[in-house]
Design a protein around this nucleic acid. Sequence first.
RNA 1: GGGACGUUAGCUCAGCCGGUAGAGCAGCGGACUUUUAAUCCGUUGGUCGCCAGUUCGAAUCUGGCACGUCCUACCA
Length: 510
Amino acid sequence: MTTQTSQPLQPNENEQSDVHDNQIVAERRAKLSTLRQTGIAFPNDFARLHLSGELHSEYSEKTAEELEALAIQVSVAGRMMLKRVMGKASFATIQDMNGRIQLFISNNDTGEAPHAAFKHYDLGDILGASGVLFKTKTGELSVRVTSLRLLTKSLRPLPEKFHGLTDQEQKYRQRYIDLITNEETRKTFITRSKVIQAIREFFLRHDYLEVETPMLHPIPGGASAKPFVTHHNALDMEMFLRIAPELYLKRLVVGGFEKVFEINRNFRNEGLSTRHNPEFTMIEFYEAYRDYKYLMDFTENLFREVARKVLGTTVISYQGKELDLGQPFHRLTINQAIQKYHPQFSDEQLNDREFLLSELQDLKAKHKPDDGLGGLQLSLFEELSEHLLFEPTFIVDYPVEVSPLARASDSRPGITERFELFIVGREIANGFSELNDPEDQEARFDAQVAAKDAGDEEAMFKDNDYIRALEHGLPPTAGEGIGIDRLVMLLTDAASIRDVILFPHMRPGA
RNA sequence: GGGACGUUAGCUCAGCCGGUAGAGCAGCGGACUUUUAAUCCGUUGGUCGCCAGUUCGAAUCUGGCACGUCCUACCA
């Protein structure tokens, strides 16, 4: 076979493309050109009948003699990851959706021409092979190929076969290469899929209804965050990508869907980090006639079930440290959580506004000097204790001023029936008994609007239709949101949120 | 946003005190019928992230810019 071309390959003149052909790509294009001239270059009539994983699980226990006697005919296909040519015989390893299998190609079995053609196939090419299962003398289950076809020519070289792709940026930007090359990456995203499936099963089994609510909101609501702004042409109006589905889901509870959940994306116009992607996946769920204490038990059960189904155990190792989701989750008030790691603070001090203010100033901790007692306690907690809550811990007694949608305690004014769940020092869930008093809700919205007018970019908008819905009557309800990406990070031991999002957002370029 | 570090062949990486570029893998040519990161022989391949500056001379030193990684800040 000749690899010469009569004319030099033209460089890609498309300015949109930053990809130009190097020598390797040019050689592969020449091979493709030959394929086009001699037949169908991208055939789609190969019948793949067997997957590598199934073959291994069914036949790896068989001896060489047993396989010989069975003479099992198979058709496999996949991407060629390894290639070893030895004159009149060759080995190749192909990879399909559930593993790898070795092919043995020899002049004896295929004839000379197909084997000669194979020698010019490149790593990364997608092959279809038919033949008989056998075991090599080292005991590896393989296919003795009688017919071999190149199904898709790969024009670009794969990363080095041993080290694979290690450059983090390229792993994120060209995830397809990462997935081809790195088993760990494939496993992470399979786990992510299983986590979401296990969560969905848990809610369906508890008679929840899965719903979809708008991603385009005329008024962003349900969380304190900066929204993405967009524009609807036909209506000529500003719209916002949703920051949370909360207000729509509670409208559904008003409508009589007493147990609802939604698993979908939220968008927040914030910075990128190892813990933040501008779009992230949350489950939010609402159940009528329940309160926040019920939710805490429910959440523990959910996390345990997901871990058992996905990992087969509740004991997980995160960045070198172990924790057991099977143990009862800790429950602490904000003040107890401060004192747990800083016992020098007395109850009196933690309830002394002036003391808290001076302490926060000394620590150079972020806080709002106009906050009430509860807000300052929360700021101190976030500064001193939050990152230390490695084992699952529910923090309760959030102040009203930072919880505009949560029901206030009947016995303790200023405190809401709310919790946040922290694991490995990260907030992973947020739940509360819902505020269903429309007049109280309206007053809370008005306070948010006042804060927004005073410059708080993350303060909420007033949603009059939501008030109207509450005026029809929201039954006593409990609701919660769980950050799916962070849960998956926990269960896959991922250090960065980018490792659990297939296509994390990156600055354009490179 | 702030700090530290990084960017050299398609990939993984060397490159010292400044003298104009190296290895392995991949590719190409050759040998080889049970290899498995196959092996052996030969060989092609580079805008050293970009732009300035210093210098007789810069991958190397200086400044700026771009992008990334990690830490940090906000959040879920």
